[in-house]
């Protein structure tokens, strides 16, 4: 039995509608970027748009800051709220596999989905922006996107951590810690601002993967 594949079927059934909605939203966002960019070039001329991007750090797609994070949180909610409703997670953990492996597989599914969506969006957005702007600006846009993609991935993991946590008091603490860690990724939106923060990004991502296991252990021991 391939545990990841078997569990992914369940996770897919829960998340497929949301993934469809996210794809539509992302297509709409790319379409909006195309219209916005062509409109700005028509009004301000290309050279001024280039100047704003290169020297003033103007974002080509500023709304991505929120869209990606919301996508991560929504995926976490859609995946884990049904597990906690009527404590269905007991059924999942009762499946004939190690509990750590079960939890890890569910998390990997979510991380993979959100990462794939972010990569797909970045790719399509880069292709669209490349039609009008030079590769340097596309590179800067991707540098700007990087912490927001990390926020989406970590936001998913922290949402899982919060949803699985069985005790409300502890859940509040999880929310405070999550908001604190995620806010570190929104201190600056200037391209390349996080180039020296690789270790911090690594720690945040690691925390978002490890913390849900602590909630799962507390759930398993019947903490109320």
């Amino acid at each position: 039995m391939n545990l990841f594949r078997a569990l992914s079927y369940k996770e897919w059934m829960k998340t497929r509608r949301l993934i469809g909605v996210m794809l539509l939203l992302m297509a709409a966002a790319v379409g909006y970027t195309y219209i916005d960019l062509t409109h700005a070039i028509r009004l301000n001329e290309a050279v001024n748009v280039w100047y704003g991007c290169l020297f003033q750090g103007t974002s080509v797609a500023p709304w991505m800051m929120y869209l990606l994070l919301l996508a991560g949180i929504a995926l976490g909610v859609v995946q884990y709220v049904p597990e906690m409703t009527q404590k269905r997670l007991k059924l999942t953990l009762h499946l004939p596999a190690g509990e750590t492996q079960i939890m890890a597989s569910m998390l990997w599914y979510g991380f993979s989905v959100i990462l794939l969506l972010c990569l797909l969006l970045s790719l399509v957005l880069s292709a669209v922006v490349r039609l009008f702007l030079p590769s340097e600006i596309v590179g800067m846009m991707l540098q700007q996107l990087l912490p927001w993609i990390v926020a989406a991935v970590a936001g998913y993991g922290f949402t899982a951590w919060i949803c699985i946590e069985p005790q409300w008091k502890q859940r509040m603490l999880c929310i405070v810690v999550s908001v604190g860690l995620l806010s570190m990724l929104f201190v600056s939106s200037y391209p390349g601002a996080y180039s020296q923060f690789g270790a911090g990004i690594g720690w945040i991502l690691a925390a978002s993967f490890i913390f849900p296991f602590s909630s799962c252990i507390r759930f398993k021991y019947g903490v109320q």
Partner: peptide
């Protein structure tokens, strides 16, 4: 061990055939 939770709780987002397909992958 077959476990039935109080209230016949199951993964309610599945259909009758999907839930059978899901569980069948775990039990040889």
């Amino acid at each position: 061990v077959g476990l039935l939770l109080e209230g016949h709780v199951q993964h309610a987002y599945f259909t009758v055939s999907q839930i059978e397909k899901f569980y069948s992958a775990f039990f040889p």
